[in-house]
Design a protein around this nucleic acid. Structure first.
Lengths: 205, 205
DNA sequence: GCTCGTATCCCATGATTATGGGATTGACCG
DNA sequence: CGGTCAATCCCATAATCATGGGATACGAGC
């Protein structure tokens, strides 16, 4: 069963090149190719693609907005972003919106086909520079401040981060609320802050 | 100039196979191959590898602990995890510790060499299933609650998340502290919470 | 013209937090 | 054995925050 691909790309020569590439390769089926994504929701519902190739910079509505609308639907299709932009803002906005993969337009046709298959098979292809950015956002930045908290102080802070009040923290840890207060005072000294919200801002920085 | 590769893998047959593969390929230089990573810091300092292949499950000290120690040094080498584990906990622990790439051991030798080069050139190769997991953690989970906040309410919440007090938020937004209070009251109604920390817990969920 | 939503400000009361003291216990270290 | 540190509890005062009112103004939409 071939992979059903739907293309959104406003640049006509490129859109046609993509169409020819996909339609001309066995195991890949081009189910549509559009120059704008204004009717993306109904088109996806009707054409039932497995993978959607989406350009970011399109007239009327950006590819990112289109992804957001798709996400509000019970869609199963995965979206592969194909763009010339590799600036952090655009990349992460698209990923957060729900993109499954992110390729730069300079990607080779053979790699593009491979990426479409990878998405279809449960992967998340990215250009190398994008992948590195994504990894770096997940890297833990050692925080000398918070690492010097004691076990109990850390537990208190974690509970506060979950939205618990002093009272609840005390109940949950089975200690007196006065003890909670004491720990929080010490946390403030160590982190050089003066309120829970400030401490939490440092905690998750 | 060949890529200098250092291998940590306790399984001897596999370690030797990796050594032969790397050393036998032009443009790749095997600078060392060890069965344990207890002296990883000094070895890396001495051998000056560009890319480190690291197994996770090793005797004495896990590959993740080794990465943590390397991160505390002024090391420039990138670490590529090579493991049989693809469970979420282990994957994300390694990534947070500072791994640059994450490959499963079932990866083909040709793909492995390609991945080493990709790391060297600034990428972050991952097995498809790992890449998908990474992307999903970054996906914004549409929160109907917070999306119904007005512009100003959202701005207030963002500033509270940065650790600002009502007073500071008011000064920063150039509005009265009473207005800040009003917005916060409405935020509480919309998010069904009763404190700043609770609201923030929902805000970033 | 009227309603609704957003943005803005004000007041009063009670609950929670912040700050700055003390105090005790047990573990670990030299 | 004395010192330090983590963990535990208590009190009092001041500052913030939470809650529940009310009020005005402006633009969009019916």
């Amino acid at each position: 069963m071939p992979i059903r691909v739907l293309v959104y790309e406003d640049n006509t020569p490129l859109r046609e090149a993509l169409s020819v590439l996909i339609d001309g390769t066995s195991d890949y089926d081009l189910v549509g190719a559009f120059g704008d994504n204004l009717r993306v929701v109904s088109q996806v519902a009707g054409l039932q693609p497995d993978v959607i190739l989406m350009d970011i910079d399109m007239p009327g509505q950006t590819g990112i907005e289109a992804i957001r609308k798709l996400r509000q639907q019970p869609t199963v299709a995965d979206v592969l972003i194909l763009t010339v932009f590799d600036d952090d803002d655009r990349v992460f906005e698209a990923i957060r919106a729900g993109a499954t993969g992110y390729l730069l337009k300079k990607t080779q046709p053979s790699r593009l086909l491979e990426a479409i298959r990878e998405v279809y098979e449960g992967g998340a292809p990215m250009s190398p520079s994008i992948a590195r950015k994504v990894m770096q956002t997940l890297h833990y930045r050692p925080n000398t401040d918070i690492s010097q908290l004691t076990t109990r102080e850390g537990q208190v802070l974690a509970r506060l981060a979950d939205g618990m009040s002093y009272k609840l923290v005390a109940a949950d840890m089975e200690i007196s609320i006065e003890t909670v207060r004491t720990y929080i005072k010490r946390i403030y000294e160590k982190l050089h802050v003066h309120s829970v919200t400030e401490a939490l801002a440092k905690f998750r920085s």
